[in-house]
Computed example of a mutant assay.
Amino acid sequence: MDNGFTPMNDDEVLFVDRGRVLMTNPTFKVSEFLDQLAQAVSDREGEWTEDNEAWFEDGLECEALRFNSGTGWQRGRVRIRLEFAPLKPQERLPERSSARQPDVLQPEPLTDRLRPRNIDDIYSNDDY
């Protein structure tokens, strides 16, 4: 069950004002958080290997016993990612029609805009 969560890309940005872990700034890229997490693990584990790095990149070979697969143990790869779920679904903007609307005022032709005007008339129309 994913509850609307989707994986985030490394260049996406988060703003976390409460409950922060690992990050001193409230705004950071996903890749910065994953780097800090890798550093924290590295500091705790002592010797950092390519196998440790695999948790944060292409994944580490493993076996998983998944609840919904019905196949028992399954070979694969596992990696650590951040996921995000919006509180409300994003509303889509209405589609713009390329057809001309008859009730929409059309701007006057450019030739009319460039014709000489009386100095008293210059500020009479706010369109210019």
Results as ranks from 00 to 15, higher is better:
Met1Tyr: 06
Asn3Glu: 13
Gly4Lys: 06
Gly4Cys: 03
Gly4Ile: 04
Phe5Glu: 10
Phe5Asn: 00
Phe5Cys: 12
Thr6Val: 12
Thr6Arg: 15
Pro7Asp: 14
Pro7Asn: 12
Asn9Phe: 03
Asn9Arg: 10
Asp11Glu: 13
Asp11Ile: 07
Leu14Gly: 04
Leu14Thr: 00
Phe15Lys: 14
Phe15Cys: 14
Gly19Ile: 06
Gly19Pro: 03
Leu22Pro: 01
Met23Lys: 09
Met23Gly: 00
Met23Trp: 04
Pro26Leu: 02
Pro26Thr: 05
Thr27Gly: 11
Thr27Arg: 08
Lys29Pro: 00
Glu32Tyr: 01
Glu32Met: 06
Glu32Lys: 00
Phe33Ala: 01
Leu34His: 02
Leu37Glu: 01
Ala40Asp: 10
Ser42Lys: 05
Ser42Tyr: 01
Asp43Pro: 00
Glu45Thr: 08
Glu45Lys: 10
Gly46Ala: 05
Gly46Tyr: 05
Glu47Tyr: 09
Thr49Cys: 03
Glu50Gln: 07
Asp51Thr: 06
Asp51Gly: 05
Ala54Pro: 03
Phe56Thr: 02
Asp58Ala: 04
Asp58Arg: 09
Gly59Glu: 03
Glu61Asp: 15
Cys62Met: 12
Glu63Thr: 15
Ala64Tyr: 01
Leu65Thr: 13
Arg66Asn: 07
Arg66Val: 15
Phe67His: 13
Ser69Asn: 14
Gly70Val: 00
Thr71Gln: 15
Gly72Ile: 09
Gly72Asn: 11
Gly72Glu: 08
Arg75Leu: 08
Arg75Ile: 09
Val78Met: 04
Val78Ala: 08
Arg79Pro: 05
Arg81Met: 09
Leu82Trp: 03
Glu83Asn: 00
Phe84His: 09
Pro86Val: 04
Leu87Lys: 12
Leu87Ile: 07
Lys88Glu: 14
Lys88Ile: 13
Pro89Ser: 11
Gln90Gly: 14
Glu91Arg: 15
Arg92Cys: 11
Arg92Phe: 10
Ser98Pro: 04
Ala99Thr: 08
Gln101Lys: 05
Gln101Gly: 01
Gln101Asp: 15
Asp103Asn: 07
Leu105Trp: 08
Gln106Lys: 15
Pro109Tyr: 01
Thr111Leu: 08
Thr111Ile: 14
Asp112Lys: 13
Arg113Val: 06
Leu114Val: 11
Leu114Ala: 06
Arg115Asn: 09
Arg115Met: 12
Pro116Asn: 06
Arg117Ala: 03
Asn118Cys: 12
Ile119His: 08
Asp120Lys: 03
Asp120Thr: 15
Asp120Ser: 10
Ile122Met: 09
Ile122His: 04
Ile122Thr: 03
Tyr123Thr: 13
Asn125Lys: 07
Asp127Ile: 07
Tyr128His: 14
Tyr128Arg: 11
